[in-house]
């Protein structure tokens, strides 16, 4: 009943593992790629046998939506990333500088306000950013980008930094952790020394469990996986 043993400790970066991988066999890799490809094709296929859309122009033209949503990986690349538990570094549209904001005395919860109340910390909309940046640092090239989004009536397409692949089936709730006095930096590192957020900690199951064990809280599987 013990937790599966993770491949490596939580701190090291994904790159550290790479040299090992080249030792491995190519043919089997091809097999995996093939299997994933088939799985993906399978998922994309609609399974409603008598779907009439092919001979009915109405359904084609009237529908405003198309496509299928499925937990299948959208690409082979993501499937492999999931497989190896690696998380690609997101490319942010604006190089948001955490350290500057924190140095000005802002609290994490000023922007990530959901953290005390719900599962997700959340990111505020551009309206929140522009409340200050109408007047502050308007000549900064990054702020100009921000203002450009606002002028177009768009929100900033921020990319998630911390997430779990769907196949991990993790349902993480921030609020109980904050209530228990776990500091943000325990999982997210010291953001006052970071500019653009990157995934500093591996957040593997081992990482979660070590803390849960140390604090004597539940390590039952269904605490997180359901």
């Amino acid at each position: 009943m013990d937790a599966p043993k993770p491949r490596q400790s939580s701190g090291s970066s994904p790159a550290a593992r790479r040299p090992l991988r080249f030792l491995l066999l190519l043919p089997l890799a091809c097999g995996v790629l093939g299997a994933l490809w088939i799985a993906r094709a399978e998922a994309g296929r609609g399974h409603f046998s008598s779907a009439p859309s092919a001979n009915s122009p109405v359904t084609r033209q009237v529908n405003s939506s198309s496509g299928v949503f499925s937990p299948a990986h959208p690409s082979v690349g993501e499937a492999l990333d999931d497989f190896f538990d690696t998380y690609p570094t997101p490319v942010q549209p604006i190089a948001f500088n955490h350290s500057i904001h924190l140095a000005k005395g802002m609290k994490c919860t000023a922007c990530h306000s959901g953290v005390t109340r719900g599962p997700d910390a959340g990111i505020p909309s551009i309206t929140f950013c522009m409340a200050c940046h109408q007047v502050i640092a308007t000549t900064n090239p990054q702020i100009k980008k921000l203002a450009a989004y606002a002028a177009k009536g768009q929100d900033v397409p921020w990319q998630r930094v911390y997430w779990f692949y769907p196949s991990a089936h993790v349902r993480f709730w921030h609020a109980p952790h904050i209530r228990a006095g776990v500091d943000c930096s325990v999982c997210h590192g010291d953001m006052s020394r970071e500019t653009v957020a990157v995934r500093q900690k591996g957040l593997t199951m081992q990482f979660c469990l070590s803390c849960h064990r140390a604090k004597g809280v539940s390590v039952d599987c269904t605490t997180c996986h359901y």
């Binding site: 491995l24 995996v32 492999l80 190896f84 690609p88 929100d155 990319q159």
Partner: peptide
Amino acid sequence: SAASAAGALVDVTHKKGLPGKEMIRFI
């Protein structure tokens, strides 16, 4: 072990949130 090799290759090219590939977001 086998798949690791392919994974490494893909890792380098696969990036999340490349500009132009994302849908715009409304406020």
